[in-house]
């Protein structure tokens, strides 16, 4: 029994007798299919793409060989097609661009429009070691600046990519490295519980608070996509505050880690889209208390999300990779 409110809810159900569940019927199969446009693109990204599908009662369907048109500030910038449902987009975008997509498979068509936000500036990155229980963490303080947030609420997404390079094999001859091979693991995890913006005002100082029963008033929805907004900024600046669990490889010679902090300025539509998607797990667990997660869509004539973000990235490297010729001593 994790949460006091659930206790209340279950007691309520117990007191209004044994609530009962039953089947009512099936969803009507004849409901109209809609074209799904999904694209979370990056302004200067090289790997941008659009996915197209059709909705269905029990499954979705790939949409191949459709026509996708990209307009930038009203001008046609690109047309794409594909024999898979992935449509590569080569256009590059700049902050302030109005980007429009039109997609059609002949039977279904849909469109969406978005404006590319301003990019934030990463002012500084500091770190400190912290320890919770038996775990060691590094707390990173990432100071960002976005003057455009002074005018209106702006929306962001933080992702962390930890490239952890482990020495697979190293051969030395005469105390000198003549061969080395590495394997690289990717880790996207970070703990945001000590950050007020990432926890939407519900910061808990440490991820360890998770272990405490009943600390949340309602079933906690995790901010698994690292969404935050400028409501917590001061003078257009904010210092993000996240904890990364210490990687054991830091103690091994030759192992090294590149930590990429990616801060995307995202359109409002992407922010609310991902926030709604975040609640799916909670919806599954508690249908009665959690409202149906209606995922907002900015696609007209269909559904999905079309968004172009502007990304600022900074990288911290820890440890030093071995290089040919390094001395063993």
């Amino acid at each position: 029994m994790k949460h006091l409110l659930h206790i209340l809810a279950f007691t309520f159900a117990a007191f209004v007798a044994a609530s009962c569940e039953y089947e009512i019927g099936e969803v009507d199969e004849s409901s109209k299919h809609q074209l799904i446009i999904n694209a979370l693109m990056t302004a200067q990204g090289q790997d941008n793409y659009v996915e197209l599908h059709l909705t269905g009662t029990t499954k979705t369907t790939l949409v191949r060989n459709a026509q996708v048109k990209i307009f930038i500030n009203g001008s046609l910038a690109e047309e794409a097609t594909s024999d898979t449902c992935i449509y590569k987009i080569k256009s590059l975008f700049a902050s302030g661009d109005k980007v429009r997509i039109e997609a059609s498979d002949g039977q279904h068509s849909a469109s969406a429009e978005t404006t590319v936000p301003e990019t934030v500036t990463v002012v500084s990155v500091d770190s400190a070691d912290v320890r919770f229980g038996n775990e060691n963490y590094t707390r990173y303080f990432i100071k960002i600046k976005d003057p455009s947030s002074l005018k209106e609420t702006k929306y962001y997404r933080l992702s962390v990519v930890r490239e952890q390079h482990k020495v697979n094999g190293a051969y030395y001859h005469d105390n000198e490295l003549y061969y080395v091979s590495y394997s690289t693991d990717i880790d996207n995890k970070y703990s945001y519980y000590s950050d007020i913006a990432l926890s939407e005002g519900m910061s808990k100082k440490s991820k360890d608070y998770e272990n405490m029963d009943a600390i949340e008033l309602v079933e906690e929805v995790k901010n698994v996509f690292g969404l935050f907004r400028s409501s917590y900024f001061s003078n257009g600046e904010y210092t993000l505050n996240i904890d990364l669990k210490e990687w054991w490889g830091h103690d091994v010679k030759g192992d090294a880690e590149d930590i990429h902090f990616k801060i995307r300025s995202i359109p409002e539509s992407e922010y609310y889209y991902l926030q709604a998607v975040s609640v799916f797990q909670n919806y599954e667990e508690g249908v009665m208390l959690t409202p149906a997660p209606i995922v907002p869509s900015n696609v007209k004539g269909g559904t999905g999300i079309f968004s172009v973000s502007a990304m600022a990235e900074t990288t911290i490297s820890r440890g030093k990779k071995l290089e040919i010729g390094d001395k063993i001593w």
Binding site: V27, D28, S31, Q34, I36, N38, A39, L40, E51, H53, T55, G56, T57, T58, K59, T60, R157, S159, V160, V161, N188, K189, Y190, Y192, K222, N223, V224, F225, G226, L274, V277, S278, F280, Q281, E284, P291, A292, I294, V295, T303, G304, I305
Partner: peptide, 25 residues
């Protein structure tokens, strides 16, 4: 009136920052 799921759709997701979470069941 209430809101129910009437169809299946596709959702695009960035990488999760917490591997203990599952978005879908």
């Amino acid at each position: 009136y209430t809101t129910i799921a009437t169809q299946q759709t596709r959702y695009i997701l960035p990488q999760l920052n917490d591997d203990s979470s599952t978005i879908f069941n």
